[in-house]
Structure formats: structure tokens, C-alpha cells
């Protein structure tokens, strides 16, 4: 009976002992992926920002400019691209909608971002775009990979439509989480006008050609990333945009289109932190809690099995003692 029990315990010990590395190094890389149907919105605000009034082409200080970022996973498009890509793909259709203090649209830029669901590496397919223009992204955008490392990453800037390093600047505490702080500075760069701007009667796509006035942009981008899920828990951009040269500015060299410190609204910070705290438990289950738990359990079961085995081999009755005197055999 003990023998049988020790064999059963041994089978369980091997089961849990094998499950531990299999979960971490086989199941986790395959199971940890961005769901293709994700929908998320975020609201960012720039208080006391400078904003151009297109009616007078003068910039003025306004109490608040709001940026609404929506991100919507397109499951059908992802399935279509997966057929040719041969891997799990996520397609995010996003919109950055900027609203002035009067509630009117300042600009809106749609994007289609296609990436590997596991590694977040960009996948290039038809439809990848920024504001209707085809692009080929390098690096990441919006989200970092699972188990983010303390190193620089290439980050795609949708305004400049190029990628540049975003630097790891240290670990910080944020709402009780240990997060990695990343920062990227995009130097003054000429960028295309957004296709949708509040310029009645003017086609923004030909604005530079017809007037010679170009749009320039610089930003310092800050992200606080939960290293377990790779999700940003907070974001901030110190942003400046200027129109330069040409005939549109009435003889002036440049006019500020927008200048402000764009920060995530507090309720969205709290909401994002709560969401990330929930999701990081799932990742930690596969990378830490279950593998270590199963390894510990395997060791306990193995020890128990060996102990039972040893007990089953111990003789229950004392060995018979030789009492009779044996006569020597004489040949």
C-alpha cells in the first residue's frame, strides 16, 4: 500500500516538476498576447496651453486643450493579415482627437497599427498608415512588450512618422507599482499637416505647396511602464508645434500652433493603474507564481514519496535470530 502511494506521489512530483518550466518557457510565450479585440480610450489634457486661432492666425493662451485617444482592435482585419503573416497579429485602429476649450475640433489623426500579438514587433501589411498615408513602422508604439527590459526601445512617432530611441531613465514608484520610466525627445522636425483641421475651405494636404508655410514639431515624450505587462500606466508629452515661413503668416517667421504639457487626466490614470494591476496578476501567474509554486510542490511531493518508499522497505518484524547451533559439516 505504501509502495503504491509513494509511486502516485512520485508521478505527481514529476508532473508538477515538469509543469513548472513548461509553463514559464513554453506556455507563457504562447499564451501571453494582446487580445485582438481590445478597446481602450484615454483622455489627456494640457492646461494653460498655447493654441492658434485659425480665424486670425494668432496664437493665444487657452485654459485647456483635450486629447482623446481611442484604440480599437479590429478582429476581422487581424484574421485576414494572420493568413499571410502566419502568426498572431493585432490590428489597432486608433484616433487622436484634439479638442479646443470651446469644444471644437483642433485636429484629428487616425492610425492603423499592426503588430505581433506576442512580441509587439510591427507587422507590415496593407492598411498600415498614419492619417491615411502608408507607413512602415519600426519599433513599438502605445505599448511595450511583456516583461519590459531596462533598456532603450525604438519608439514610433506618429507626427514625425519616424522611429527614434526612447530611453530607459530608471525605476520609479507610481501608485504602488514599480514602473520603468522612459523618455524620448523628438527635435524640431518638419511634419505633414493633419488632414482634418479646422480650416474651412482649405485643403490641408496641399497647404504647404500652395502657401510655402510648413508645420514643425518637437516633443519630449514621457512614459511610465509596468514592466510585467508592458502597459503604460501614465503618459505625458511636452509638445510644441509651429507654422514657419510662407505666405500664410502675414510676414511673420513663425507662429505657435500649439504649446503645452499634455498629461493624462487623473481619472484615466487611476483607471489604467487598476486595469494594469489586474492584468499583471495573470502574467505573474504564468511567469512566477505558478512555476515557483509548482516547483515547491514537486519537491514536497518527491520528499514525501521517498519517505514513504523508505518506510515501505523498512522491515516490520525484527529479523529472526539464529538460536540453533549448526553442526560443522565434515566431508
Amino acid at each position: 500500500m505504501r509502495r503504491k502511494a509513494s509511486l502516485v506521489l512520485l508521478a505527481f512530483a514529476v508532473f508538477f516538476g515538469a509543469l513548472s518550466p513548461l509553463l514559464r518557457w513554453y506556455a507563457f510565450p504562447r499564451l501571453a498576447k494582446i487580445p485582438p479585440s481590445q478597446y481602450q480610450e484615454a483622455v489627456l489634457e494640457a492646461k494653460n496651453a498655447t493654441l492658434i486661432d485659425y480665424a486670425t492666425m494668432q496664437s493665444k493662451t487657452v485654459p485647456k486643450v483635450t486629447v482623446v485617444q481611442t484604440l480599437k482592435g479590429n478582429v476581422e482585419a487581424a484574421k485576414e493579415i494572420e493568413k499571410s503573416a502566419g502568426k498572431d497579429v493585432v490590428v489597432w485602429d486608433t484616433l487622436s482627437y484634439v479638442q479646443g476649450p470651446d469644444g471644437k475640433m483642433v485636429s484629428q489623426i487616425p492610425e492603423r497599427y499592426i503588430f505581433d500579438a506576442h512580441s509587439q514587433a510591427p507587422v507590415h501589411a496593407t492598411g498600415e498608415m498614419v492619417d491615411g498615408d502608408p507607413v512602415q513602422r519600426k519599433g513599438i508604439e502605445f505599448k511595450w512588450p511583456f516583461l519590459t527590459e531596462k533598456r532603450d526601445y525604438e519608439y514610433f512617432d506618429f507626427q514625425a512618422r519616424t522611429s527614434a530611441p526612447i530611453h530607459y531613465k530608471g525605476t520609479q514608484k507610481f501608485h504602488g507599482l514599480d514602473v520603468y520610466y522612459f523618455e524620448q525627445t523628438v527635435p524640431w522636425t518638419k511634419v505633414p499637416y493633419p488632414k482634418k483641421m479646422p480650416l474651412p475651405g482649405i485643403d490641408s494636404s496641399t497647404l504647404e505647396k500652395t502657401t510655402g508655410t510648413s508645420l514643425w514639431y518637437t516633443t519630449t515624450r514621457k512614459f511610465w511602464i509596468d514592466p510585467v505587462t508592458g502597459a503604460p500606466v501614465n503618459g505625458e508629452e511636452v509638445n510644441q508645434e509651429e507654422m514657419r515661413g510662407g505666405t500664410l503668416l502675414g510676414g511673420r517667421d513663425k507662429v505657435t500652433v500649439f504649446a503645452g504639457d499634455v498629461k493624462m487626466r487623473d481619472d484615466y490614470v487611476n483607471h489604467t493603474v487598476d486595469l494594469v494591476k489586474k492584468n499583471r496578476v495573470l502574467v505573474l501567474l504564468l511567469t512566477s507564481y505558478l512555476p515557483w509554486g509548482f516547483l515547491g510542490l514537486a519537491l514536497v511531493l518527491l520528499a514525501l514519496s521517498l519517505w514513504l518508499e523508505a518506510r515501505s522497505r523498512r522491515p516490520s518484524d525484527p529479523p529472526p535470530t539464529v538460536t540453533e547451533r549448526l553442526d560443522p559439516v565434515i566431508a
Partner: peptide, 10 residues
């Protein structure tokens, strides 16, 4: 996989 959300881009 789930389904594409019916919610709009805001």
C-alpha cells in the same frame, strides 16, 4: 479572440 468592439473611435 473576441469580437471587434461596436464602440466608436471617440
Amino acid at each position: 479572440e473576441g469580437k471587434t468592439s461596436p464602440k466608436p473611435l471617440l
